[in-house]
């Protein structure tokens, strides 16, 4: 029997409250449609620009690196607006309104090739652009099954949020909490699932490796790549770039072939794979700078 402390109850209540708010906002957005909802994003972003100094500061720092010049306030505003647009579009994409968008897919052949071998792969993403648009594409390919791996706390929130946004949607989210969660990943992978994981952020600050990213060293979690190494899975980069308007580019790129079976080569394989991931992430940051959605000091 668990005894609920007042704090726990308060957190539960607050979460239920924000979920209610989410459900209502989603319904309002769907009812208003995308063009009208988008107008509301401007005052919301302006509000964030004024009220969130920490996010604003980290946006400045990032934009100075990627643009190679001192950013202006309008750049930061555009950064926030891009983020808000992707969040809003998520609602429409999750409610299967893909036809309203102009989505271009690159590297579809990589996905098809791997799906044909039946072996699955690790799809590494980032807090960059729209993760949702890549999943919308995934759902259109019935022979590709995608499971998402994420921290248990986030997994709970995402499951609840997804249920609020579209109750009919079935999502395969594996929470990284129970001791056998990665055995689940192994079984799904061997059954041919694609395992999606965001590989640019660590929550617990453990198991990090430093790589040069946009001019100086930044820490990236080794976990996703170690899983790929242990399970001898190919690694594919998956990124949904928002290009403005209704245009999204979904990009699949092969990052690494399966790790060799000799154990001592594992570390080398991981290093090479992580370097390739970080290099390609940097490439897409330069290509579409306002899609980077890590609003904290990434290089700290």
């Amino acid at each position: 029997m668990t005894i609920k402390t007042p704090t726990q109850e308060w957190i539960t209540r607050r979460e239920r409250g924000s979920l209610n708010l989410l459900t209502h906002s989603v319904q309002i957005a769907l009812w208003m449609g995308r063009p009208v909802s988008r107008i509301l994003l401007y005052p919301i972003c302006l509000y964030f620009l004024i009220s969130s100094p920490a996010a604003t500061r980290s946006s400045y720092q990032y934009l100075a690196r990627v643009l190679g010049r001192p950013p202006r306030v309008r750049d930061v505003f555009r950064h926030f607006l891009t983020f808000a647009s992707c969040v809003l579009d998520r609602v429409f994409l999750l409610n299967e309104r893909c036809d309203e968008y102009d989505i271009h897919v690159q590297g579809e052949d990589i996905v098809r090739e791997i799906a044909e071998t039946g072996g699955g792969c690790i799809l590494v993403g980032a807090h960059f652009g729209s993760f949702e648009v890549t999943r919308a594409i995934g759902r259109q390919q019935p022979d590709v099954q995608i499971s998402l791996l994420m921290y248990e706390e986030n997994a709970k929130k995402i499951r609840a949020a997804l249920a609020a946004i579209n109750p009919r949607l079935e999502t395969e989210v594996i929470g990284l909490g129970p001791l056998d969660s990665l055995i689940t990943v192994a079984e799904r992978l061997f059954a041919g699932h694609f395992i999606g994981v965001l590989a640019d952020r660590s929550v617990n600050g453990k198991n990090l490796a430093q790589y040069n990213f946009l001019g100086s060293m930044a820490a990236f979690p080794t976990g996703p790549f170690k899983i790929a190494m242990l399970l001898h899975a190919p690694v594919v980069l998956m990124i949904g770039v928002y290009r403005g308007g209704r245009r999204y580019d979904v990009i699949f790129e092969r990052i690494a072939k399966p790790a060799p079976s000799e154990r001592h080569d594992g570390a080398l394989w991981m290093d090479r794979t992580m370097r390739q991931y970080v290099d390609r992430l940097e490439h897409y940051c330069r290509d579409a700078p306002f899609n980077w959605f890590n609003f904290f000091n990434f290089w700290d």
Partner: peptide, 16 residues
């Protein structure tokens, strides 16, 4: 976790 201090990736390695 507490005890020998293995994490879920370690558990995967052990299982393998």
């Amino acid at each position: 976790g507490e005890g020998l201090g293995l994490d879920s990736i370690d558990m995967l390695e052990v299982a393998l």
